[in-house]
Amino acid sequence: MRALTFEPGRPGMLEVEEVPDPEPGPGELLVQGLALGVCGTDRELADGEYGWAPPGRSRMIIGHESLGRVLQVPDGSAFSPGDLVVGVVRRPDPEPCGACARGEFDMCRNGRYTERGIKEIDGYAAERWTVEAGYAVRLDPSLESVGMLVEPTSVVAKAWEHIERIGSRAWFEPRTVLVTGAGPIGLLAALLGRQRGLEVHVLDRTAGGAKPALVADLGATYHVGSSLDAFANAKPDIIIEGTGVGQLVMESMTCTSAAGIVCLAGLAAGGRTHRLDVSEINRDIVLENDAIFGTVNANLRHFRDAATALAQADRTWLERLITRRVPLSQAKDAFVHHPGDVKVILDLTT
Protein backbone atom coordinates (compact mmCIF):
# COMPACT_ATOMS: atom_id res chain seq x y z
CA MET A 1 0.00 0.00 0.00
CA ARG A 2 1.01 3.66 -0.30
CA ALA A 3 1.92 5.74 2.74
CA LEU A 4 3.45 9.15 3.36
CA THR A 5 6.65 8.69 5.36
CA PHE A 6 9.42 10.89 6.71
CA GLU A 7 12.64 10.62 8.67
CA PRO A 8 12.39 12.49 11.99
CA GLY A 9 15.10 15.07 12.49
CA ARG A 10 16.02 15.32 8.82
CA PRO A 11 14.37 17.96 6.62
CA GLY A 12 13.30 17.20 3.07
CA MET A 13 12.74 13.48 3.65
CA LEU A 14 8.97 13.37 3.07
CA GLU A 15 8.06 10.71 0.49
CA VAL A 16 5.09 8.68 -0.73
CA GLU A 17 6.30 5.11 -0.79
CA GLU A 18 5.10 1.52 -0.83
CA VAL A 19 5.02 -0.10 2.61
CA PRO A 20 3.65 -3.45 3.79
CA ASP A 21 -0.08 -3.65 4.45
CA PRO A 22 -0.80 -3.48 8.20
CA GLU A 23 -1.95 -6.60 10.02
CA PRO A 24 -4.43 -5.94 12.83
CA GLY A 25 -3.43 -7.33 16.20
CA PRO A 26 -5.77 -8.58 18.91
CA GLY A 27 -8.47 -6.03 19.62
CA GLU A 28 -7.53 -3.83 16.65
CA LEU A 29 -9.61 -2.50 13.78
CA LEU A 30 -8.37 -2.58 10.21
CA VAL A 31 -9.31 0.73 8.58
CA GLN A 32 -9.27 2.09 5.04
CA GLY A 33 -7.67 5.52 5.16
CA LEU A 34 -9.94 8.13 3.56
CA ALA A 35 -8.41 11.50 4.36
CA LEU A 36 -5.89 13.22 6.57
CA GLY A 37 -5.72 16.79 7.83
CA VAL A 38 -2.35 18.55 7.56
CA CYS A 39 -1.42 21.05 10.26
CA GLY A 40 1.54 23.08 11.49
CA THR A 41 2.83 20.15 13.53
CA ASP A 42 3.06 18.02 10.38
CA ARG A 43 4.96 20.76 8.57
CA GLU A 44 7.40 21.07 11.46
CA LEU A 45 7.93 17.31 11.43
CA ALA A 46 8.56 17.36 7.68
CA ASP A 47 11.05 20.20 8.21
CA GLY A 48 13.01 18.01 10.61
CA GLU A 49 12.35 20.14 13.69
CA TYR A 50 11.43 17.16 15.87
CA GLY A 51 9.78 13.73 15.78
CA TRP A 52 10.74 10.29 17.05
CA ALA A 53 10.68 7.17 14.86
CA PRO A 54 9.53 3.80 16.22
CA PRO A 55 12.33 1.91 18.00
CA GLY A 56 14.77 0.33 15.57
CA ARG A 57 13.60 2.34 12.56
CA SER A 58 14.70 5.56 10.88
CA ARG A 59 11.46 6.32 9.00
CA MET A 60 7.83 6.43 10.06
CA ILE A 61 4.40 7.19 8.64
CA ILE A 62 3.31 10.75 9.37
CA GLY A 63 -0.20 12.03 10.13
CA HIS A 64 -2.43 12.42 13.18
CA GLU A 65 -5.65 14.09 11.90
CA SER A 66 -7.24 10.86 10.69
CA LEU A 67 -10.41 9.72 8.96
CA GLY A 68 -11.15 6.21 7.78
CA ARG A 69 -13.72 3.50 7.20
CA VAL A 70 -13.62 0.23 9.12
CA LEU A 71 -12.80 -2.81 6.99
CA GLN A 72 -12.37 -5.50 9.64
CA VAL A 73 -13.24 -5.78 13.34
CA PRO A 74 -12.18 -8.19 16.09
CA ASP A 75 -14.65 -10.63 17.60
CA GLY A 76 -17.03 -9.00 20.04
CA SER A 77 -16.25 -5.50 18.85
CA ALA A 78 -18.76 -2.66 19.19
CA PHE A 79 -17.62 -1.47 15.75
CA SER A 80 -18.85 -2.81 12.41
CA PRO A 81 -17.36 -2.86 8.92
CA GLY A 82 -18.37 0.33 7.16
CA ASP A 83 -18.24 2.52 10.28
CA LEU A 84 -16.66 5.93 9.83
CA VAL A 85 -13.93 6.38 12.46
CA VAL A 86 -11.04 8.51 13.61
CA GLY A 87 -8.11 7.38 15.70
CA VAL A 88 -6.96 9.06 18.91
CA VAL A 89 -3.42 10.45 18.66
CA ARG A 90 -1.77 9.94 22.04
CA ARG A 91 -1.17 6.73 24.03
CA PRO A 92 -0.28 6.58 27.73
CA ASP A 93 3.24 5.76 28.84
CA PRO A 94 4.06 2.05 29.33
CA GLU A 95 4.31 2.44 33.10
CA PRO A 96 1.53 4.96 33.51
CA CYS A 97 1.90 8.08 35.56
CA GLY A 98 -1.08 8.95 37.72
CA ALA A 99 -2.76 10.95 34.94
CA CYS A 100 -2.21 8.34 32.21
CA ALA A 101 -3.46 5.56 34.48
CA ARG A 102 -6.76 7.43 34.81
CA GLY A 103 -7.26 8.03 31.09
CA GLU A 104 -5.96 11.61 31.26
CA PHE A 105 -2.99 10.85 29.00
CA ASP A 106 -3.16 14.30 27.42
CA MET A 107 -1.94 15.54 30.83
CA CYS A 108 0.97 13.03 31.12
CA ARG A 109 3.38 13.95 33.88
CA ASN A 110 6.56 12.14 32.83
CA GLY A 111 6.63 12.64 29.04
CA ARG A 112 6.84 8.96 28.21
CA TYR A 113 3.63 8.94 26.19
CA THR A 114 3.69 8.04 22.48
CA GLU A 115 1.78 9.66 19.61
CA ARG A 116 0.60 8.44 16.22
CA GLY A 117 2.62 10.04 13.44
CA ILE A 118 4.71 12.10 15.85
CA LYS A 119 6.38 10.08 18.58
CA GLU A 120 7.36 6.42 18.18
CA ILE A 121 4.14 5.14 16.51
CA ASP A 122 3.26 5.21 12.80
CA GLY A 123 0.63 7.75 11.88
CA TYR A 124 -2.49 7.66 9.75
CA ALA A 125 -1.22 8.91 6.35
CA ALA A 126 -1.70 5.55 4.67
CA GLU A 127 -4.20 3.77 2.48
CA ARG A 128 -4.81 1.36 5.36
CA TRP A 129 -4.12 1.61 9.07
CA THR A 130 -4.93 -0.21 12.26
CA VAL A 131 -6.09 1.18 15.58
CA GLU A 132 -6.97 -0.33 18.93
CA ALA A 133 -10.75 -0.36 19.31
CA GLY A 134 -10.39 1.50 22.59
CA TYR A 135 -8.67 4.40 20.80
CA ALA A 136 -11.15 4.69 17.91
CA VAL A 137 -14.15 7.00 17.81
CA ARG A 138 -17.16 6.29 15.62
CA LEU A 139 -18.50 9.27 13.66
CA ASP A 140 -21.94 10.14 12.39
CA PRO A 141 -22.07 9.12 8.70
CA SER A 142 -22.89 12.74 7.79
CA LEU A 143 -19.29 13.68 8.67
CA GLU A 144 -17.72 11.68 5.83
CA SER A 145 -16.48 14.82 4.02
CA VAL A 146 -15.23 16.64 7.16
CA GLY A 147 -14.46 13.98 9.78
CA MET A 148 -10.73 14.67 9.67
CA LEU A 149 -11.59 17.89 11.56
CA VAL A 150 -12.34 15.85 14.69
CA GLU A 151 -8.72 15.88 15.89
CA PRO A 152 -8.25 19.68 15.82
CA THR A 153 -11.75 20.06 17.25
CA SER A 154 -10.77 17.72 20.11
CA VAL A 155 -8.03 20.19 21.06
CA VAL A 156 -10.54 23.03 21.44
CA ALA A 157 -13.11 20.73 23.07
CA LYS A 158 -10.51 20.14 25.78
CA ALA A 159 -9.82 23.88 26.01
CA TRP A 160 -13.52 24.61 26.53
CA GLU A 161 -13.86 21.82 29.08
CA HIS A 162 -11.01 23.28 31.12
CA ILE A 163 -12.35 26.83 30.77
CA GLU A 164 -15.64 25.66 32.22
CA ARG A 165 -13.94 23.73 35.02
CA ILE A 166 -11.94 26.79 36.01
CA GLY A 167 -15.01 28.99 35.77
CA SER A 168 -16.88 26.73 38.17
CA ARG A 169 -14.56 27.87 41.01
CA ALA A 170 -17.11 30.70 41.51
CA TRP A 171 -20.19 32.17 39.87
CA PHE A 172 -19.65 31.81 36.13
CA GLU A 173 -21.98 33.17 33.47
CA PRO A 174 -19.66 34.38 30.68
CA ARG A 175 -21.11 36.42 27.86
CA THR A 176 -18.18 37.20 25.56
CA VAL A 177 -15.18 35.32 24.23
CA LEU A 178 -12.31 36.59 22.11
CA VAL A 179 -10.40 34.14 19.92
CA THR A 180 -7.05 35.33 18.58
CA GLY A 181 -6.07 33.72 15.30
CA ALA A 182 -8.48 32.56 12.59
CA GLY A 183 -6.69 29.39 11.58
CA PRO A 184 -8.48 26.04 11.94
CA ILE A 185 -8.02 25.95 15.73
CA GLY A 186 -9.30 29.50 16.13
CA LEU A 187 -12.28 28.99 13.85
CA LEU A 188 -13.22 25.74 15.57
CA ALA A 189 -12.84 27.39 18.98
CA ALA A 190 -15.22 30.09 17.74
CA LEU A 191 -17.67 27.44 16.54
CA LEU A 192 -17.75 25.81 19.99
CA GLY A 193 -18.15 29.22 21.59
CA ARG A 194 -21.19 29.95 19.43
CA GLN A 195 -22.59 26.50 20.24
CA ARG A 196 -22.45 27.62 23.90
CA GLY A 197 -24.49 30.70 23.09
CA LEU A 198 -21.66 33.17 23.66
CA GLU A 199 -20.93 36.44 21.88
CA VAL A 200 -17.80 35.54 19.91
CA HIS A 201 -15.13 37.85 18.52
CA VAL A 202 -12.26 36.63 16.33
CA LEU A 203 -9.08 38.65 15.76
CA ASP A 204 -6.76 37.94 12.83
CA ARG A 205 -4.30 39.89 10.68
CA THR A 206 -5.92 38.74 7.43
CA ALA A 207 -8.44 41.13 5.89
CA GLY A 208 -9.36 39.07 2.82
CA GLY A 209 -9.88 35.46 1.87
CA ALA A 210 -12.34 33.03 3.39
CA LYS A 211 -11.86 33.84 7.07
CA PRO A 212 -14.05 36.94 7.53
CA ALA A 213 -17.04 35.26 5.91
CA LEU A 214 -16.52 32.05 7.89
CA VAL A 215 -16.59 34.04 11.12
CA ALA A 216 -19.59 36.12 10.07
CA ASP A 217 -21.56 33.03 9.09
CA LEU A 218 -21.09 31.68 12.61
CA GLY A 219 -22.84 34.79 13.89
CA ALA A 220 -19.54 36.04 15.30
CA THR A 221 -17.63 39.28 14.73
CA TYR A 222 -14.36 39.42 12.77
CA HIS A 223 -11.67 41.97 13.66
CA VAL A 224 -8.55 42.75 11.65
CA GLY A 225 -5.50 43.70 13.68
CA SER A 226 -2.35 42.60 15.47
CA SER A 227 -3.12 43.86 18.97
CA LEU A 228 -5.96 43.84 21.50
CA ASP A 229 -6.28 47.62 21.62
CA ALA A 230 -9.88 47.43 20.40
CA PHE A 231 -10.81 45.38 23.47
CA ALA A 232 -9.23 47.64 26.09
CA ASN A 233 -12.62 48.88 27.32
CA ALA A 234 -15.10 46.14 26.38
CA LYS A 235 -13.09 43.37 27.98
CA PRO A 236 -14.07 39.78 27.11
CA ASP A 237 -14.81 37.25 29.84
CA ILE A 238 -12.74 34.59 28.08
CA ILE A 239 -9.79 34.76 25.69
CA ILE A 240 -8.60 31.77 23.71
CA GLU A 241 -5.17 32.76 22.41
CA GLY A 242 -4.39 30.65 19.37
CA THR A 243 -1.42 32.39 17.78
CA GLY A 244 1.40 32.02 20.30
CA VAL A 245 2.56 35.52 19.29
CA GLY A 246 4.30 37.09 22.29
CA GLN A 247 2.58 40.46 22.11
CA LEU A 248 -0.90 38.93 21.97
CA VAL A 249 -0.08 36.52 24.78
CA MET A 250 1.01 39.38 27.02
CA GLU A 251 -1.93 41.59 26.11
CA SER A 252 -4.35 38.73 26.76
CA MET A 253 -3.15 38.46 30.35
CA THR A 254 -4.47 41.94 31.16
CA CYS A 255 -7.38 42.26 28.76
CA THR A 256 -10.15 40.15 30.32
CA SER A 257 -12.96 41.22 32.59
CA ALA A 258 -12.60 40.56 36.33
CA ALA A 259 -12.23 36.84 37.09
CA GLY A 260 -11.47 36.36 33.42
CA ILE A 261 -9.97 33.23 31.94
CA VAL A 262 -7.19 33.11 29.34
CA CYS A 263 -6.52 29.82 27.55
CA LEU A 264 -3.16 29.71 25.76
CA ALA A 265 -3.55 27.23 22.90
CA GLY A 266 -1.05 28.50 20.32
CA LEU A 267 2.64 28.01 19.70
CA ALA A 268 4.85 30.32 17.69
CA ALA A 269 8.49 30.13 16.70
CA GLY A 270 10.89 31.98 18.96
CA GLY A 271 12.52 35.15 17.81
CA ARG A 272 11.41 38.60 18.77
CA THR A 273 12.05 39.66 22.38
CA HIS A 274 9.34 41.65 24.15
CA ARG A 275 9.78 44.02 27.03
CA LEU A 276 7.10 43.64 29.68
CA ASP A 277 6.26 44.86 33.13
CA VAL A 278 5.81 41.64 35.06
CA SER A 279 4.73 43.51 38.16
CA GLU A 280 1.89 45.21 36.31
CA ILE A 281 0.72 41.93 34.80
CA ASN A 282 0.94 40.24 38.18
CA ARG A 283 -1.03 43.05 39.83
CA ASP A 284 -3.82 42.80 37.27
CA ILE A 285 -4.11 39.02 37.53
CA VAL A 286 -4.08 38.98 41.34
CA LEU A 287 -6.47 41.86 41.95
CA GLU A 288 -9.01 40.57 39.43
CA ASN A 289 -8.81 36.83 40.30
CA ASP A 290 -7.88 36.07 36.70
CA ALA A 291 -6.77 32.61 35.56
CA ILE A 292 -4.33 31.78 32.78
CA PHE A 293 -3.61 28.24 31.62
CA GLY A 294 -2.06 26.37 28.73
CA THR A 295 -3.47 23.39 26.90
CA VAL A 296 -2.33 20.91 24.26
CA ASN A 297 -3.48 17.56 22.88
CA ALA A 298 -6.67 15.71 23.88
CA ASN A 299 -7.85 12.44 25.35
CA LEU A 300 -10.59 10.02 24.34
CA ARG A 301 -13.54 11.95 25.78
CA HIS A 302 -12.41 15.12 24.02
CA PHE A 303 -12.45 13.25 20.69
CA ARG A 304 -15.98 12.09 21.46
CA ASP A 305 -17.01 15.62 22.43
CA ALA A 306 -15.50 16.89 19.18
CA ALA A 307 -17.41 14.32 17.11
CA THR A 308 -20.64 15.42 18.80
CA ALA A 309 -19.90 19.12 18.23
CA LEU A 310 -19.16 18.59 14.52
CA ALA A 311 -22.29 16.48 14.05
CA GLN A 312 -24.30 19.42 15.42
CA ALA A 313 -22.55 22.01 13.24
CA ASP A 314 -23.56 23.23 9.81
CA ARG A 315 -21.96 20.81 7.35
CA THR A 316 -21.60 23.41 4.62
CA TRP A 317 -19.70 25.71 6.99
CA LEU A 318 -17.35 22.89 7.97
CA GLU A 319 -16.69 22.05 4.33
CA ARG A 320 -15.73 25.68 3.68
CA LEU A 321 -12.93 25.35 6.24
CA ILE A 322 -11.28 22.91 3.85
CA THR A 323 -9.77 25.14 1.18
CA ARG A 324 -7.63 22.51 -0.59
CA ARG A 325 -7.83 18.74 -1.06
CA VAL A 326 -4.57 17.26 -2.32
CA PRO A 327 -4.25 13.69 -3.66
CA LEU A 328 -1.85 11.41 -1.82
CA SER A 329 0.17 11.09 -5.04
CA GLN A 330 0.98 14.83 -4.75
CA ALA A 331 1.28 14.88 -0.96
CA LYS A 332 4.26 17.23 -0.76
CA ASP A 333 2.13 20.05 -2.11
CA ALA A 334 -0.07 19.84 1.00
CA PHE A 335 2.95 20.88 3.07
CA VAL A 336 3.49 24.08 1.08
CA HIS A 337 1.42 27.07 2.17
CA HIS A 338 -0.73 28.57 -0.59
CA PRO A 339 -2.36 32.02 -0.35
CA GLY A 340 -5.85 31.65 1.08
CA ASP A 341 -5.22 28.30 2.78
CA VAL A 342 -7.31 27.62 5.85
CA LYS A 343 -7.30 23.82 6.11
CA VAL A 344 -5.50 21.49 3.71
CA ILE A 345 -6.52 17.85 3.42
CA LEU A 346 -4.79 14.83 1.92
CA ASP A 347 -7.11 12.53 -0.03
CA LEU A 348 -5.73 9.08 0.75
CA THR A 349 -7.83 7.40 -1.94
CA THR A 350 -6.23 9.17 -4.93
Rank of each mutant, 00 (worst) to 15 (best):
T114V: 07
E115A: 15
R116P: 01
I118D: 12
I121N: 02
G123T: 05
Y124N: 07
A125V: 09
A125D: 03
A125H: 12
A126N: 10
A126R: 13
R128H: 12
R128K: 15
E132L: 07
E132R: 10
A133Q: 15
A133T: 11
Y135D: 02
L139K: 02
P141N: 04
E144M: 00
E144S: 05
S145L: 06
V146K: 01
G147C: 04
E151A: 06
P152K: 12
T153Y: 04
S154A: 15
V155G: 01
V156L: 14
V156M: 13
V156K: 06
A157V: 05
A159R: 05
A159V: 12
E161P: 00
H162Y: 09
I163G: 04
I163N: 04
E164Y: 06
G167Y: 10
R169A: 15
R169Q: 12
A170P: 00
W171G: 12
W171H: 13
E173S: 14
R175N: 06
V177F: 03
V177C: 07
L178A: 13
T180P: 05
T180H: 07
G181C: 11
G183T: 09
P184H: 11
P184F: 13
I185L: 15
I185K: 02
I185V: 15
L187C: 09
L187W: 11
L188H: 10
L191E: 03
Q195I: 07
R196E: 07
R196L: 08
E199H: 11
V200L: 10
H201Y: 15
H201M: 11
H201L: 12
H201S: 15
L203V: 04
L203A: 14
D204Q: 03
D204S: 15
R205A: 12
T206W: 03
A207G: 08
A207T: 07
A207F: 02
P212M: 11
P212W: 13
L214G: 00
V215C: 06
V215D: 12
A216F: 00
D217H: 05
D217N: 13
A220G: 08
A220C: 10
